[in-house]
Design a protein around this nucleic acid. Sequence first.
DNA 1: CGGGATCCGAGACGATACTG
DNA 2: CAGTATCGTCTCGGATCCCG
Lengths: 142, 142
Amino acid sequence: MICGMSEPAAAESRDDGDLQPEADVFARRCTSRATLQTVTGRWGILALAALSEGSYRFNALRRRVDGVSERMLSQTLQALERDGLVHREVLEAIPPRVEYSLTPLGIEVANRLLDLIELVESHMPEVHAAQQDYDARRRRPL
Amino acid sequence: MICGMSEPAAAESRDDGDLQPEADVFARRCTSRATLQTVTGRWGILALAALSEGSYRFNALRRRVDGVSERMLSQTLQALERDGLVHREVLEAIPPRVEYSLTPLGIEVANRLLDLIELVESHMPEVHAAQQDYDARRRRPL
DNA sequence: CGGGATCCGAGACGATACTG
DNA sequence: CAGTATCGTCTCGGATCCCG
């Protein structure tokens, strides 16, 4: 089973969404849902999208992803590295130098994200119109 | 400019990421980033993915998206409706009946999300292997 | 330069109760 | 059935200080 999250001794197989042969994001405890979150999280998307342009050093990436704090970028990169999407290479030098780049899987994921980003960006006028429409209708329900 | 968020009287144009002719998720205050978050948020993805299977009523959708609370589903659907991705239709009847479905734009977005979901699900074995590798290396740094 | 450790507020989230 | 309201919890995320 792909969905399994081998927890030491908590909540054994009384669930039904746990015995599936394949990953299913709709199942509550499926690990694919967690992975999807690290990928689509607030900073995960942007980090992957930025790294799809090429490798970055920590602070360069921080400047590229406008608004991210050191802490969150560090956390995000660790999560992405753990899931095998980002490769971290420490270059022995003074001052320290660390290069981040995408793994093959990371590239695949990033490509999908870029598709999505491009789609959303190109349709922002529609979205803004819908928002104004919605907000107007909510102030005067009818 | 697409990135603009017309705020009454706060933080005028001393920013640089605000005068662009196009949307850019990398810019801190770009509205496309917010939209991307409602779309890729924890429940947003799953709601859109579920609705790509066809229209759903509120509680049916709640059952489909395993683990979501009434509150969060309601919030998520409102955000998606506001951005013009989900259509909400109230059928006058007793008991009340509300159908949720995707708009044309919502379908486009959902398709991209399904691509991403499928990719992630199919690579979960790789991800799990990477995680175990990472965790093992962190316990014994070298 | 590339982070880790800590503190703390804001918002996400879930459970429950209530309404039309 | 389809939500809203309220509350308490808990994680996210920013600011700051610190170290190699």
